[in-house]
Amino acid sequence: MRRPSIACCALLCALSACRGDSPEVSPAAEVLRFSVIPDWNKGRLAENAARLAELLTARLGVEVRYEPANDYTACVNGLAANKLDFVWLGGKTTCDAIDVGAGHVHVLATRDIDLHFKSYFIGNRAALDAGRVAVVDDLAAWRGHTEGLRFTFGDVNSTSGHLMPRHFLLQAGIEPEQAFASVGYAEGGHSGTLEAVAAGAVDLGALNFAYYDRADEQLRERAPLLFTTPEYVDYAWVAHDRVGADRVAKLREVLLGLDRAHGDDEAAVLDAWSAGAFVGARDEQWQAIRAVRDGLPKGFLK
């Protein structure tokens, strides 16, 4: 019986040592960890994030580290679980993060374009030429003409690739799962949607307008624009208040202060985020997105 009790003592000591290591004084807290939702070519996202990490490390005087993410949900959960300190999220996930954060998570900044964001519905060139899909001013014009068409959303968590397109389709009286021959969720973010439509793997798709506008000319030629949705609020930087009020203020200051006129490093970050500038924002501005998220019929989850 002696040996087990020694082992127990050792275990207890080890445990108490762990407990004593409170998060506030832990040296690891001196690293700020951030991530971005994987909504596009991940290689390029990593390059962009590395650029920002470098800039922030220099400006904040603290190591800022980029943690790659594999899916949107993990970004939200990472923030709540203290794996991440601030994150670049989409509209829906911004609402998720604020809700899960229970008062500790707030919007840090957004882009100028996010306050007037929109989705594009695109179609395969061959399908358009064959008259199976059409350019429209109102999605309702598609009603009754969707039989046999294969449709793809982006990631299920995407605001511009899934939430809002589904919302506008429903508003137009088109229930995707009923109307289309197949409804998919493209892998690889909005670039996946664009590739799938361009390659003819599907006839129709919905995606983020900003990525489409920047995409390769040839790809866009093979997947022309059919409909532009009304505007809504989308992406945002959100931070957990464990970062500390001072540091949050400093972080916001750096982000809002980015200007192409200040030099190449700042221009590179703004280019990478396709932003004219980052602007301040309040949590309440995402209330409309939250209403759409909560009001959406959840049949597609069953």
């Binding site: 949900t73 299920v156 998919g184 959840k298 597609f300 989850l301 069953k302």
Partner: peptide, 21 residues
């Protein structure tokens, strides 16, 4: 990763925070 069925619905329900489902 796209085949649908149990795996996909599990992930989608996590995404919409329907944890019981």
């Amino acid at each position: 990763v796209g085949a649908g069925g149990l795996g996909q619905l599990f992930r989608h329900n996590l995404a919409f925070r329907q944890h019981a489902d």
